[in-house]
Design a protein around this nucleic acid. Structure first.
Length: 922
RNA sequence: GGACGCUUAGCUCAGUUGGGAGAGCAUCGCCCUUACAAGGCGAGGGUCACUGGUUCAAGUCCAGUAGCGUCCA
């Protein structure tokens, strides 16, 4: 084995073997356990959030597989309508073409070409993470069978009246020329202005001043609203305004929606271009005047001089015109929330169009109940509040998109715009008994990508066919995802799965935190703080990293800033930490918090942990390979240390499994880290050396220790395999032949370790803890007295009880070696011993005579420090116990514990005082 | 405006039904001891944001305040 752990040499070939051997497939035996991968965009590449969530899914998958469950991790990708269409369109544009030049069919062919060549990026990156998904079952949301499911669902919902077509105000992306759902719009605060404009009353009796952030929309105003309780304006209700520029007459209406304290208290109402105004307009039966083209240019409903102007040019013009007419009162700087499309970044325009909607109310009800009844549980539980809040206020879902790439809506229109829904034109004609002479045209639009994602839990299992998978893996076990798509996806899956299978889609929903940078900022291209998980695995040099972070930056200043920061933060680029270290980092950071600040220091720490495990394994192998490990029989005599490490392993296994059960991956990681490093490496390996290296050890003893070394390591590897698949497999392949195992193909196929009550032994644990205390006591004195670790010492034990003596006898060899002692002498009762530096272990004092070794002042200082600490402890405990209410009200056990503590502190104080006196008298 | 969350060591974070403040990294000493310097041994470091309440006992429960953040309107 190499002296240091080199992940690059092992990972990819191991993965290939696993995949080729078909180890990722469900066994078909045992309890079903299923995880659905939230399908990543086929255009996407792996980001830290994917890495994090997929690590967790893989831990659960590998764990349950080893536990013997019938485990399926269902993977696939999402066709990502807008994103994918944009990618391919951009390529066309670069070649001087548009999609319209090609036409719909040719364009879609191009998209499929693109998918065939570049669509596999994210799935190959997933493989680098070690994800053990069943790739043979990989699906794509545009596959034939999934498309059939989409059609089926659409048709059924339409036939039941749950899908309808209607004219509504939608979020319109004027760049992409499509409607988008509320969830695809990001509202961010931006600097803008508030224009105060004079609106004269029609009867010439005065004027109102309205404030707006969008003066250009005045061309579509159909009312001015005031609050009904606003005494300033009450008397004007019912009067009319003569709208400037257009000269149209509009009403003054009263509505609670208006906040009298905001702006001037008078609000211009543009029902066709604002969601609140739209609602208000419906309440007051106002006319809706659309003033924009699909490009957000002024249309023919506006006065001629503005037609064709872009909305922002129109704004300038209108403001100028108003000013000229003396109708502009003032302009103030104003911060406002600007809606932008999450794909295009364009300012979204509320726009009146015909769209398809799902009426969700009846679907939402059982979906809410499933969570209320506890059939579906959120982890952490608190997220159900977010879910309820959304579900109780759920709006009908706009599912049509004006795109080419996606599931085309299975609806046909005749010339009178009657709607016919069915799988294809022939089916439609048959279904509705239409005459052949009637011309039909199919709806041009496609469905929202999330519409197909919502069917994921059952469509991936073969629905609408009745398949065994549908029976076995619905509901799935747990959904691992981020809170950002509870609405987008989780809620919709629950609704659709219940509707079409009568079952819930999953039993638990584990909501992960969001990975941020080390300062808590969201990772984003524009901030230049994005980390690529693959770079953490393979490493990247500084220049490539800078290049990557600044590529395609439109603003040179920003690029410069990012480059500078990157050079500062990663002067040597990023080291290759390997997949296991990255996975362990994700695992250790998976606590209950909703934000996770990714700290590079921890990746490095866990890389070191991998190296530690690697080297510990080297040590084990060096001492067991080609030696008798008892695998073929022979007497095994287990030392105290051997029995101790087995007992500690049981504790670790229990803690690890309990943590996994609660989805506390951080605690699981901590348990395995602590055991491996602080118990197995720091103590057990050291404690095994005296046995292995001593001529006094019998064959049975050596065999026992070798057996323990190799078998504890083997069990430990299995325990941690779900977290760190590569390094554990690599080491296990060397270790397995030294154990009595029938099947050594892969650690993946091994059973998970089981708790063995027979190996739990509190007495042994206490004995070794005692030994550790004595050793640490001696080391302490060495450290603080500046005595070389290599110098052998003589030690006296004072006030040793029979238990201490028993333990000393049982651990004599270990103690001598580990503390580098040449002699251990037990003082007789009452014997004082020479002046010494002392460590206290329970009632016993471990003394190192000072003669020639120890500096009087230094030892006094040490004693004083210890005394002060004990005194403080004593005082606190004493105060507690002398409090009568404490003694009368606290539970017996607590009081007894306090009393015991007081005794302990008192003994320690007494001993320290004695020592102090002895040394002072020197 | 509504909902939710966070504030514990220099940094990143644990702290399970209330009962002697923890880890990793960083810092400071000493060590190239035959698994590991990506290491070993040891040390220092905290008014648990603030105020009040409940309790024998509060980092933990309750109320309020401040700061930060997320989502929804």
């Amino acid at each position: 084995m190499d002296k240091t752990f080199n992940p690059q040499n092992i990972e990819q070939s191991r993965y290939q073997q696993w995949e080729e051997q078909g180890y990722f497939k469900a066994s078909g035996e045992g309890e079903p356990y299923c995880i659905l991968l939230p399908p990543p965009n086929v255009t996407g590449s792996l980001h830290m959030g994917h890495g994090f969530q997929q690590t967790i899914m893989d831990i659960l998958t590998r764990y349950h597989r080893m536990k013997g469950d019938n485990t399926l991790w269902q993977v696939g990708t999402d066709h990502a309508g807008i994103a994918t269409q944009m990618v391919v369109e951009r390529q066309l544009n670069a070649a001087g073409q548009t999609r319209h030049d090609l036409g719909r069919d040719k364009f879609i062919e191009k998209v499929w070409d693109w998918k065939a060549h570049s669509g596999g990026t994210i799935t190959s990156q997933m493989r680098r993470l070690g994800t053990s998904a069943d790739w043979e079952r990989e699906v794509f949301t545009m596959d034939d069978n999934l498309s059939a499911a989409v059609q089926e669902v659409f048709i059924q919902l339409y036939d039941e009246g749950l899908i309808y077509r209607g004219q509504r105000l939608v979020n319109w992306d004027p760049v992409l020329h499509t409607a988008v759902s509320d969830l695809e719009v990001l509202n961010e605060e931006e600097d803008g202005h508030m224009w105060h404009m004079r609106y004269p009353l029609a009867d010439g009796s005065g004027e109102l001043v309205v404030a707006t952030t969008r003066p250009e929309t005045m061309l579509g105003d159909t009312a001015v609203a005031i609050n009904p309780d606003d005494e300033r304006y009450q008397h004007l209700v019912g009067k009319q305004i003569k709208l400037p520029i257009t000269g149209r007459l509009i009403n003054i209406v009263a509505d609670d929606y208006v906040d009298a304290g905001f702006g001037t208290g008078c609000v211009k109402i543009t029902p066709a271009h604002d969601f609140n105004d739209y609602e208000l307009g419906k309440r007051h039966d106002l006319e809706m005047i659309n003033i924009f083209t699909p490009d957000a240019k002024i249309n023919d409903n506006a006065p001629e001089q503005y037609r064709g102007l872009d909305r922002y040019d129109a704004r300038k013009q209108i403001v100028a015109d108003l000013e000229e007419q003396g109708l502009l009162v003032k302009v103030e700087p104003h911060k406002l929330k600007v809606p932008r499309g999450d794909r295009s970044g364009a300012v979204i325009e509320p726009y009146l169009t015909n769209q398809w909607y799902v009426a969700v109310e009846s679907l939402a009800k059982p979906a809410i109940e499933a969570v209320e009844k506890g059939e579906i549980k959120f982890v952490p539980e608190n997220w159900n509040k977010t879910y309820y809040q959304w579900m109780y206020n759920i709006q009908d879902w706009c599912i049509s998109r004006q795109l080419w790439w996606g599931h085309r809506i299975p609806a046909w229109f005749d010339d009178a715009d009657n709607i016919y829904v069915g799988t294809d034109e022939a089916a439609v004609r048959a279904k509705y008994k239409l005459d052949d002479s009637l011309t039909l045209r199919q709806d041009e639009d496609v469905l929202d990508t999330w519409f197909s994602s919502a069917l994921w839990p059952f469509a991936t299992m073969g629905w609408p066919q009745k398949t065994p998978e549908l029976e076995t893996f619905v509901p799935s076990s747990v959904l691992v995802t981020g809170f950002d798509i509870i609405f987008f996806w989780v809620a919709r899956m629950i609704m659709m799965t219940q509707k079409f299978t009568g079952k819930i889609p999953f039993k638990e929903i584990y909501i992960t935190g969001l990975i941020r940078d080390e300062q808590g900022n969201k990772m984003s291209k524009s901030k230049g703080n994005v980390l690529d998980p693959i770079d953490l695995i393979d490493g990247i040099d500084l220049e490539s990293l800078v290049e990557k972070r600044t590529a395609g930056m439109m603003q040179p200043k920003l690029a410069e800033k990012i480059a500078k920061r990157t050079r500062q933060q990663f002067p040597d680029g990023i080291a290759a930490y390997g997949t296991d270290a990255l996975r362990f980092t994700f695992t250790a950071m998976a606590s209950t918090s909703r934000d996770i600040n990714f700290d590079m220091g921890r990746v490095e720490g866990y890389r070191n942990f991998c190296n530690k495990l690697w080297n510990a394994s080297r040590f084990v192998l060096m001492n067991t390979e080609e030696q008798d490990t008892g695998k073929n029989g022979g007497e095994l005599e287990l030392s105290l240390a051997d029995r101790w490490i087995w007992a500690r392993f049981q504790q670790t296994l229990i803690a690890f499994e309990a943590a996994l059960k609660d989805y506390r991956f951080d605690l699981a990681a901590q348990a395995v880290y602590e055991f491996t490093w602080n118990q197995f490496c720091d103590w057990y390996l050291e404690l095994s050396k005296p046995v292995l290296n001593s001529d006094a050890s019998t064959d049975a003893q050596k065999r026992g220790t070798r057996h323990t070394l190799v078998n504890v390591l083997e069990s430990l590897l299995r325990l941690m395999h779900p977290v760190m698949p590569f390094i554990t497999e690599e080491i296990w392949q060397r270790v397995a032949p030294l154990c009595s195992l029938d099947d050594t193909r892969s650690i993946m196929l091994q059973p998970y370790p089981q708790v063995d009550a027979g190996l739990q032994d509190e007495q042994v644990v206490a004995d070794i803890e005692w030994l550790k205390q004595v050793i640490v006591g001696v080391r302490n004195i060495r450290g603080e007295m500046d005595i070389a670790p290599s110098k052998p010492l003589s030690v006296l034990l004072k006030n040793a009880s029979s238990e201490d003596k028993r333990r000393l006898q049982a651990t004599d060899l270990l103690l001598t070696k580990m503390a580098r002692l040449e002699q251990v002498t037990i003082l007789a009762d009452g014997e004082k011993g020479p002046a010494s530096a002392t460590a206290i272990v329970g009632e016993m004092e471990v003394m190192i005579p000072m003669a020639g070794l120890i500096d009087k002042e230094a030892e006094l200082a040490r004693i004083n420090k210890a005394l002060e600490k004990v005194k403080a402890d004593f005082a606190r405990t004493e105060a507690k116990l002398s409090n009568e209410t404490f003694v009368s009200k606290a539970p017996e056990a607590v009081i007894a514990k306090e009393r015991a503590k007081l005794d302990e502190f008192s003994t320690q104080m007494q001993k320290l005082n004695e020592q102090k006196e002895t040394i002072e008298n020197l």
